[in-house]
C-alpha cells in the first residue's frame, strides 16, 4: 500500500480553477447566440471542470457534494430539446420552429429572448451527462 499523497496544492488550485472553468463555460454557453460557443462546447467545458474535480478528489466525495445522476441528466437534455421542438407545434408552427423576441425586462433592460436557448440548454445537458457517464463508468470499472 502506497501512503496517501498530500495533495494540498492540487486541492487548492482545483477549488479556484473549478470556479473559473464553470464561469467560462457558462459564458461560452451564453455567448453562443452571437459569438463562438454554444451548447455543445459549453457542455464540454463544464464536463471538463467536473472531470478536474474527480481527478483531484475521489469519486465518493464528489458524488456526495454534487449528487447528480448523469445518465438522467443526459436523458433530460434530449427531452428538453425535443420538448422545445414540440413547443412550436402548440402555436401551429412546424416541429422545431424557433421563435425569438426582444423584451424589456426589469433588471436587464431590453433583452433578446429566444427559444433556441432552451434548445441549447438541452444540448448542453445531454453533452455533460453523456461525457461524465462515459468517464465515470470507465474509471469505476475494475480491470
Amino acid at each position: 500500500m502506497k501512503p496517501k499523497p498530500n495533495d494540498v496544492i492540487l486541492h487548492t488550485v482545483t477549488k479556484l480553477a473549478a470556479v473559473i472553468i464553470f464561469t467560462f463555460s457558462i459564458d461560452l454557453f451564453w455567448a453562443g447566440h452571437h459569438f463562438p460557443g454554444g451548447g455543445f462546447i459549453g457542455g464540454l467545458t463544464t464536463a471538463a471542470g467536473i472531470v478536474l474535480l474527480y481527478l483531484s478528489f475521489d469519486i465518493e466525495r464528489i458524488q456526495t457534494n454534487l449528487p447528480i445522476d448523469y445518465k438522467k441528466m443526459a436523458a433530460l437534455g434530449v427531452l428538453i430539446s425535443v420538448a422545445t421542438g414540440m413547443g412550436g407545434m402548440i402555436y401551429g408552427d412546424n416541429f422545431l420552429e424557433q421563435a425569438f423576441g426582444y423584451f424589456d425586462l426589469p433588471v436587464f433592460g431590453e433583452t433578446e429572448l429566444a427559444t433556441a436557448v432552451l434548445f441549447d440548454i438541452g444540448v448542453a445537458f445531454a453533452v455533460i451527462g453523456t461525457a461524465i457517464t462515459i468517464i465515470t463508468s470507465i474509471s469505476e470499472d475494475e480491470l
Binding site: 453562443g32 447566440h33 452571437h34 459569438f35 463562438p36 460557443g37 454554444g38 451548447g39 455543445f40 443526459a74 436523458a75 437534455g77 434530449v78 430539446s81 425535443v82 421542438g85 416541429f95 422545431l96 424557433q98 425569438f100 423576441g101 433578446e112 429566444a114 433556441a116 434548445f119 441549447d120 438541452g122 444540448v123 445531454a126 453533452v127 451527462g129 453523456t130
Partner: peptide
C-alpha cells in the same frame, strides 16, 4: 433567427433537427 453566430443559428434553429438527433446519438 435573432443570432449573430451563423454556425450556432444553423445548429439550433435552421437545422435543429440534426442537432436533436445528434444529442440522441450521444445519449
Amino acid at each position: 433567427a435573432g443570432a449573430k453566430n451563423i454556425v450556432n443559428a444553423i445548429l439550433v434553429d435552421f437545422r435543429g433537427f440534426d442537432t436533436m438527433l445528434e444529442i440522441a446519438v450521444l445519449l
